Computed example of a mutant assay.
Amino acid sequence: MATSPSNYRMQIGGDHYTRLDIQPWDALRDWLGDDGFRAYLRGNAVKYLCRAGTKDGESGRTAYLKAQHYLSELLATYDEAVIADWEAQRLAGDDPA
């Protein structure tokens, strides 16, 4: 899985991740594998949904945007898997349609 272009180097609240040469998501994806990375994304989305509006100095909207960011990446990993399956079938000579 590659990080989806729409989410790559996007950050809600600051620029402390976008300044890094290696993105934390890329490292986590490599270390955790597909299933572990998806679990990480789901867990962080839940974290931001649960704490929306409760963190000092942060609006609920910001937390919802952060949750949306994690969910967008999670959905992209499933889109990538569908595309990879289709491509593998095509290369094997099977009709993926």
Score class of each variant (00 low, 15 high):
A2Q: 15
A2R: 15
T3I: 14
S4R: 05
S6V: 11
S6F: 07
S6R: 12
S6A: 13
N7F: 05
R9K: 15
M10S: 10
M10N: 12
M10R: 15
I12F: 10
I12K: 03
H16A: 11
Y17S: 04
R19I: 13
R19Q: 14
R19P: 00
L20R: 15
D21A: 09
D21L: 09
I22T: 13
Q23H: 09
P24S: 03
P24A: 04
W25S: 03
W25I: 03
W25P: 02
D26K: 03
D26S: 06
D26Y: 00
L28G: 01
R29E: 11
D30M: 05
W31D: 07
L32T: 04
D34K: 04
D34C: 02
D35A: 15
G36P: 04
F37G: 00
R38E: 08
R38K: 07
A39V: 05
A39I: 04
L41G: 00
L41M: 06
R42G: 06
G43C: 07
G43V: 04
N44M: 02
N44K: 01
A45N: 01
A45C: 09
V46G: 03
V46W: 04
Y48S: 00
Y48R: 00
L49K: 07
L49C: 06
C50I: 03
R51V: 13
R51K: 14
A52C: 08
A52G: 05
G53T: 01
G53N: 03
G53W: 01
D56E: 15
E58T: 11
S59K: 08
G60W: 02
G60Q: 08
G60N: 05
R61P: 01
R61I: 08
R61E: 13
R61C: 04
T62G: 00
T62V: 14
A63P: 00
A63Y: 03
Y64I: 12
Y64T: 12
Y64Q: 11
L65A: 09
Q68F: 10
H69K: 10
H69T: 01
H69Q: 10
H69M: 09
Y70Q: 15
L71M: 13
S72H: 09
S72G: 10
S72M: 11
E73G: 01
E73L: 02
E73W: 03
E73V: 03
L74F: 14
L75V: 05
A76P: 02
A76Y: 06
T77C: 07
Y78I: 07
Y78L: 12
D79I: 07
E80Y: 05
E80P: 00
A81E: 09
V82I: 15
V82G: 08
I83G: 06
I83M: 07
A84S: 08
D85M: 06
E87K: 08
E87Y: 05
E87A: 10
E87Q: 10
Q89I: 02
Q89N: 05
Q89F: 03
R90W: 13
R90L: 14
R90P: 01
L91K: 10
A92T: 05
A92P: 00
D94E: 14
D94V: 13
D94N: 11
D94M: 13
D95G: 03
P96H: 06
P96V: 09
A97C: 08
A97W: 10
